[in-house]
Structures are given as structure tokens and as C-alpha cells.
Design a binder for these strands. Sequence first.
DNA 1: GTTAGCATGTAAGGAGTTACATGATTTT
DNA 2: AAAATCATGTAACTCCTTACATGCTAAC
Lengths: 198, 198
Amino acid sequence: MGKRTGVLEVAVLGLLHESPMHGYELRKRLNTLLGTFRAISYGSLYPCLKGMLQAGWIAEEAPDPDVSALGKRAKIVYALTADGKDHFSELLAASGPEEWEDDNFGVRFAFFARTDAAVRLRILEGRRGRLEERLDGFRAAATRTRERVDNYTLELQRHGLESVEREVRWLTELIDTERAAPRPAIPTPTRTTSEIPK
Amino acid sequence: MGKRTGVLEVAVLGLLHESPMHGYELRKRLNTLLGTFRAISYGSLYPCLKGMLQAGWIAEEAPDPDVSALGKRAKIVYALTADGKDHFSELLAASGPEEWEDDNFGVRFAFFARTDAAVRLRILEGRRGRLEERLDGFRAAATRTRERVDNYTLELQRHGLESVEREVRWLTELIDTERAAPRPAIPTPTRTTSEIPK
DNA sequence: GTTAGCATGTAAGGAGTTACATGATTTT
DNA sequence: AAAATCATGTAACTCCTTACATGCTAAC
């Protein structure tokens, strides 16, 4: 299935890969993972979980018997299935142009520890290339529009340019480090999924 | 009407405020204005123009008679109406929390030259405050999650933190400059709209 | 004369948001 | 006993994108 995989799905898979969790907690972890800016809402998360359940990538864990015995409503804890683990691995193996677009890059980088070293490198270089293209476009536009534009617009463009240049330098450092000492991807999740069959 | 005004609409109004333009050109100017990253597509722009026409903020200029005489299809050139000019002024007068959110801030800043000095200052300070909150959240999360997180995630967060700190310094410089020498908003468009009644 | 770029659009859909609705549990 | 925050969801909507469709015009 060519299901267009959004940032959210990857992030959820990645977090559940570490350990099972319920929706509310997932959302909090998601927001620190994605940087506080991308504030995921429940209106996005729960439908997403629903879809992933149907796809068979995650499953509800058996409710805690201690809690159920007390007549309390147990939290719905989700865990990765074997299929979900496979699916996540496939996603982490991808290194096409989409992986270094603004939105995707963040999530992909966040799970680099589990990503193959060669894929890591390709994504870092891809992103750097993308940003360098952007710099070229910027600078070309700057010489074209010079004088026709007020100081504020100019200042905004200058700041934007510097931000991108800074990110390029950051990427270069990372690439150099990767090349000097390529670390293998960490192989196993902290928890096996064998107990939760599809 | 509480019509939720998107980035696109503000940007179009602002550009047409400088001079009338047709859609294709507008899109190019839009993309350099918004920074090459936010690549507006025709599928967004033309429906947006359509809506703005209906709202009465813009109007089609009379086609160039020289071109029409040759039997060629004239370009559709849009210009601000008096209503559109008013509407744009109202938008530029807004300085609420929405104005310093990531998406809006860029456009608002781009048109600072036409924005009232006091409003400018409030937006800059509002944004800085917003980013500082974000820094606090970041750092709190960092101390909470320390050690529970791998090096890549850590590195991503570190870089994000530094980027935000950098933007805060930038804003502080701008605010200081504004306070030292507050410049009045430039008052008139380069072209009056009196010739294009609603 | 064909490729590249100019110019205008529409239809379908994606990835999320806001606002709403509900109720349990913990803290003050 | 009130307020906060934990916890789970749904419905409607927004803003924008992709992919498509069409044709003109300049450059090589």
C-alpha cells in the first residue's frame, strides 16, 4: 500500500518502538520530540492511532488486571506489533528526496540511532544539498531585487539566509563526524513484540 | 466578517499594494517574499484571488487595448480596490498573539515598512516573548529527559535550542534599534486606488 | 519546430487544526 | 469542593498541495 506516511505516523511508531504507551503520554513525548513548536493535538493523534490499529501496526495491550479489578477504567496502552516493527524498519530504510524535506527531516533525524549508517549519511547530504540549492535561489533573488525592496524585507531575507547557512555548517559537521566514525544502527528494540501477534 | 485571514491573502494584498500584477508574477514575488521554502502553488493562488475578487478587495484591471487589438489574450492584471486597501490597513494594525506565531510573523515582518511603529514594537516583543517561553519549555524538557535519550535526539534538541536563542538575539537587536530610532510607517502606496472603484 | 517558460485555471485530497463533548483522577 | 490535569474521543473545517488540463509565446 502506498499509504502516504505522515510525520505523525513515523513518530508514533518510533516512540512505541521504545516502549508501549497510551495516547495522552504519547502526545506529550511527541511534542518534546518534535520540538514544542509542532504541537500535535488529540484531534490528530487519536484518529491516527485508529488508522494504525486498523493497519495492524499497533495493538491495544491487555488492560492491567490490578486496575480493572478496582472497577476503574484502564488506560488504553498501545504497543507495536511485529508488522508495525517491520513497517517502521522500512520507513527508516528510505532515503529518497522526501526524507530531507523540512517536515520529514526532523523525525528522521530523531530516529537516527536506529537508522542504518549509510542511510543516515545520504539523508544528511541530501538535506545539505537541498539547503544549498535554497541558498543559491536566495542569493540570485537578492541580487535581482536589490534596491527595489525596503530595509525590513532585506533584513528578513538576510536573517533567513544566515539561518540556512548556519544549518549547512551544522550538517557539514555531522557529516564529517559520521564519516570519521560510522556507528552501526542499534539493532533491537528495548522490547520484543513477539508477545503481541497481529 | 471574521474571515480567518491566511498568510497568502495578506501577502497578496501587500504585494498588490505596491503595484498591480497578474497571477503568475504574483506567485514569483510571493515565493521570494516568503523565502523560497513556502513555495505557493497555482492551486492555492488562483482560488485565493478568486475569493478576494468576490470579497471586493481586488479587481481586474481593464485589459491593455494594444494587446486586445492584436487578438491576443490579455493577461489578467489584478489591482487593489479602495476596500482592499482598507482591509490591508486593518490587517497591518493587528498586533494580537496570532501575529507573532511562526507563520504569520514572516509576512507581518515583510510589511513592517507600512506598519505603525507601535504595532511593530508589540509584534517584535510578542514574538520574542513567545520564543522565550519556548526556550523555557525546551530546557525543562531537556532536564527531564536527560540520559533517557540518545545522542542524535540530544543533538537535534541542542541545535533547535541554539536556533531559537539566535532568533531571540536577533529580535532583541531589532527591538533596540526600533526604540532608539522609531520610524513612522510609510503612509501612501506607490499607486492610488481611486481609479478602481469597488 | 521543438523545448522551455509564461499564463490560467480545476478537482480531489492530505495532514493537520479548532472546537466540542465527556468523564476520571489528583492536587490544593 | 473546586480547580487542574489526566484521558479519550468526534465533527467540521482550513489551508494548502498534487495532479491534471489547456493554451500561448519566446528562444534555440
